[in-house]
């Protein structure tokens, strides 16, 4: 009669106790200077425009993934609307700068604010639901926003999209890497500067007092409420902040590519970000950035496997999940 009668321990497979291996964490005061140095010297090492483009693309993915990381690592919710918020940022920046309504920097600010506002508008009703209902509610919203980008032709350009979006005015800023690479190095520094800022925001929000409240909400909302915090406010604030960061990522993307079209802002965009966060360690900002780099760079070397890219990634994702299950990490 040694069968388990008591409910199984959370995080164990069917009640059997398994050894849990802790998630590695890097303290910010060591990691940040290291990251800054790495970003600073990277263009000198790459020294060619193609690699610099790949590295910039990795940075753009990292910003979006970090936005998602905040939501998954904080309130523990998954959002499929983030592809839409990403699109809001990209389209707002595109519309404002193509029409010369605003210059780049104020436009980027407005784009981020617009994403935050849409995040609040979506979040207030959607956050009434939890976990899977929330995921599906945001799925509905993500699909709706994608339809708006494709269908509201007079504003978004419809399926044709918006072209000739001006890039960030960076010419003239002296940059050490430009000795080796003429073009692209300023964009690289700009994108990775944003990555580092968003990364620090992630770490500060998730590990500070705010993050502690979020963590407690995940354990017990009633308990947090009894301590005088309002869980609803914390959840909404994180969601809106995350949406704003996604819009910032969208703005950065739009100015870098100089074009926005409806195909780039679907629920699959959100899903890619979720995959990056999942492999990166769910709430682990450094892991998220590292995964964004790996998932951007590796396919560039897998041209032989180009046709099977999707299949290879699916297998990779499954292997990661399997390993996490074997280590006893709860996903």
């Amino acid at each position: 009669m040694t069968e388990t009668i008591s409910p199984p321990e959370p995080g164990t497979a069917r009640g059997r106790r398994r050894r849990r291996i802790p998630v590695p964490r890097l303290p910010l005061r060591f990691a940040l200077p290291l990251a800054i140095v790495l970003v600073a010297v990277a263009p000198l090492v790459f020294a060619d425009a193609y690699r610099l483009r790949v590295a910039t693309a990795a940075g753009l993915l990292a910003i979006l993934a970090l936005a998602m990381n905040l939501l998954i690592g904080g309130p523990g919710e998954i959002s499929f609307a983030h592809g839409g918020f990403y699109g809001v940022g990209a389209y707002v920046l595109g519309i404002l700068t193509v029409g010369n309504t605003l210059s780049f920097w104020p436009a980027l600010l407005v784009a981020t604010a617009a994403g935050t506002a849409v995040g609040v508008a979506v979040g207030i009703p959607a956050l009434r639901t939890r976990t899977l209902s929330f995921a599906i509610a945001t799925l509905g919203m993500g699909l709706f926003l994608a339809n708006v980008f494709g269908g509201w032709t007079s504003v978004t350009g419809g399926s044709v999209g918006l072209a000739n979006i001006p890039r960030a005015p960076l010419d003239g800023i002296p940059v050490p890497g430009s000795i080796f690479v003429q073009s692209g190095v300023r964009q690289f520094y700009l994108v990775w500067l944003v990555v580092l800022v968003v990364l620090v925001l992630n770490v500060v929000v998730l590990r500070g007092g705010f993050g502690n409240v979020l963590k407690s909400i995940k354990r017990s909302e009633v308990l947090v409420e009894s301590l005088g915090f309002r869980p609803g406010f914390y959840r909404l604030a994180t969601f809106a902040f995350s949406a704003g960061l996604a819009a910032l990522a969208g703005g950065m993307y739009a100015q870098y590519i100089s074009f926005v079209g409806p195909d780039n802002f679907t629920i699959f965009t959100a899903f890619n970000a979720i995959v990056v966060v999942a492999i990166g360690g769910l709430g682990n900002a450094w892991g998220t950035v590292a995964t964004a780099i790996v998932l951007t760079v590796v396919p560039e070397y897998l041209h032989a496997l180009d046709d099977y890219r999707v299949v290879v990634f699916a297998v990779l994702l499954f292997v990661v999940l399997r390993v996490r299950a074997a280590l006893g990490w709860r996903t």
Binding site: L317, F318, L321
Partner: peptide, 26 residues
Amino acid sequence: LGRSGELALMLAAFAVNQFVQGGFQK
């Protein structure tokens, strides 16, 4: 994947989706 959580199962399902769809598309 047992009890490693709903998110893990959802991601696994999406991986299956991509795997099969990618293969058929190829």
